[in-house]
Amino acid sequence: LPHKKTYPCRTNVENKVVSHLLEAEPEKVYAMPDPALPDDDIKALTTLCDLADRELVLNIGWAKHLPGFSSLRLADQMRLLQGAWMEVLLLRVVFRSLGAQDRLVFAEDYVMDAAQARLAGLPDLHAGVLQLVRKYRAMGLEMEEFVTLKAIALANADSMHIEDAEAVQKLQDCVHEALQDYERARHPGDPRRAGRLIMTLPLLRQTATMAVRSFCSIRQDGRVPMHKLFLELLEAN
């Protein structure tokens, strides 16, 4: 998979952390639903779980690009990812869906409307994620803000078992400061914008918790094949 790409610098804002996060943004992933399967809930859920598993691999690679993440103790790196993996996955879906009307863009080749979500047995989750989409759309969420928020969500995972809390706090402060710097330069007339973005994180956390619960129950049901990394992270919750 090719990784590196450059984003056009849309602003004259030179924030190193934000630029670095833009560079680290993973390539898009395609869902590639299995054409041999009948169009039912199992196919939809199998497609979503497979897509999530592949995105997780990329997200772990992405996390390593966050300034300071790789210097954390390995145990703490694991705990942050175990705490925030679903928030990171959802935020990516939300950002991809900003231009879609009441539909979730899980991938370019996998877009789900409310009727399809009902068929998949995920109507509440679909509605919850759309609430986030509407919130960010109303704010005009920018790519730079999206990548920074994603990093903040990871650094803000609130694991109870962090070994070196000071180092994690430093990572959190670094990305928080990057967001504040970016907003000061990009939206000088809106001093509350960084705060308002951070205040969307509770809804993201709440929606991610709902998603993890849904997939835990799907797992218990045992009808949908799930890859190992996805299972590992589901178990971590």
Partner: peptide, 20 residues
């Protein structure tokens, strides 16, 4: 760690997303 061996392995890999 044993329980989360894939996550552990992916984090230990020195290179990033390309390293699938």
């Amino acid at each position: 760690k044993e329980k989360h061996k894939i996550l552990h392995r992916l984090l230990q890999n020195s290179t990033s997303p390309v390293d699938l």
